Simulated assay, not measured.
Amino acid sequence: MVLPDPKSYSDINSSSVIPAISHEMMNAYLLACAKSYDKATELLYKEKYLLCLRSSSQQNQNFIKGRCSAEYCKATMYTVDVALDSTRIKDQCECGAGAGPTAHCKHVSHRLLLVRLLQATGNLHGEAADLPPS
C-alpha cells in the first residue's frame, strides 16, 4: 500500500473532520473479509487499546493511521493503515492477520468502529452501543 508522507498526518479528535465513509461500505468490507464488529473489536475499544489515531488526505484518498496495543501484551504495538476513497477500503496491519491490502484482523475492525463512532456521535469516547444500527 502506498501511504502519504508521515508529516501530512494530523491527530484525530472530537473536533476533527474525518472522511465521509458510508456504513454500507464499511459493513460490506467487513462482510467480504468474514468479519464484523464482534466482542474482540469492542474489547479493544472499551479497554482503550488505541494509542493514537491520525488522518491525512491526498488527492481523492483519505488515510487513517492508528497505533494500538496488542490484546495479549499491551507492550506490543501495531500500526494500522486504512486507505479510503469513495468506492473502496484498503488496509494493512502489522499483526499476523493484517497483511494488506485487505487485512481482516480485529485491529482494522477496531479502526473502522472508531471512525463509525466518531461519524455517528462526534465523540471517540462514547459507547459502541450508541451506534445506530447498520
Rank of each mutant, 00 (worst) to 15 (best):
A99C: 08
V82I: 15
I12P: 03
C33W: 02
V80G: 01
G66M: 09
V115N: 03
K7N: 15
S109G: 10
S57I: 12
L3H: 11
Q58I: 13
K46C: 11
T102S: 12
S14A: 12
T41C: 14
T102R: 08
S55E: 13
K35L: 14
C95S: 06
S10P: 01
C33Y: 00
M1E: 04
V2R: 13
C93K: 01
L51D: 05
K39E: 09
S16L: 09
A120G: 05
I89P: 07
C105H: 09
N27D: 13
G66V: 02
T121Y: 00
Y45W: 07
L43Y: 13
Y45I: 02
Y45G: 02
A129Q: 05
P19Y: 07
K106G: 01
T102H: 15
Q119D: 05
H104Y: 05
H125P: 01
E94C: 05
L113G: 01
P132C: 03
V2C: 04
K106D: 11
C68D: 12
P19F: 10
A99E: 11
N62A: 15
A128N: 12
V2N: 15
M25N: 10
H110N: 09
E24D: 12
N13T: 10
A34N: 13
S69G: 10
V80T: 13
S134P: 10
D38G: 05
E127P: 00
L117W: 13
N27E: 13
N60H: 14
A120H: 03
H125R: 09
E24C: 01
M26V: 15
K48E: 15
G126K: 01
V80A: 06
E94G: 12
D130S: 13
N123Q: 09
A120M: 07
C105T: 10
D11N: 04
Y78H: 08
Q61C: 13
A97G: 05
M26D: 10
R111K: 02
F63K: 10
I64W: 07
K7R: 10
Q61F: 13
F63W: 14
Y37S: 07
K7S: 14
